[in-house]
């Protein structure tokens, strides 16, 4: 749940999602779910010449599994906190049996 928790804090921020087929889409992060599916608004395809069919699309839903990278706005990331969150994540029993 670490990255779900993480992405929730980035809602409303501009991100660039790069897909496994090299399509890169910039837009405002609208929402994210546990599968890291992503909804973007005000989207703009980075390489419009290669993907002219995307010109008309204004918002989109991206299945998490097709994502390669998400470029994030660095000032919106608290790296110290993020590292702690990652450390905590590892400490939780693998089975997730919390109480």
């Amino acid at each position: 749940m670490l990255f779900y928790s993480f992405f929730k804090t980035l809602v409303g921020q501009p991100v660039t999602v790069e897909l496994k087929n090299d399509l890169a889409i910039t837009g405002v992060l609208v929402s994210v779910d546990q599968f890291l599916n992503i909804k973007l608004d005000n989207i703009k395809v980075v390489d419009e010449e290669r993907y002219p069919h995307m010109l008309a699309v204004k918002n989109c839903f991206i299945r998490g599994s097709v994502v390669r990278y998400v470029q994030l706005p660095a000032p919106s990331v608290d790296t110290a906190l993020l590292q702690d969150a990652a450390r905590r994540e590892r400490q939780q029993p693998a089975a997730g049996g919390r109480k």
Binding site: F7, L36, S65, V67, R68, Y69, L72, A74, V77
Partner: peptide
Amino acid sequence: NCEMLFVRGDG
């Protein structure tokens, strides 16, 4: 180069 990058684990 990228300042901050999320990388999906399946790759």
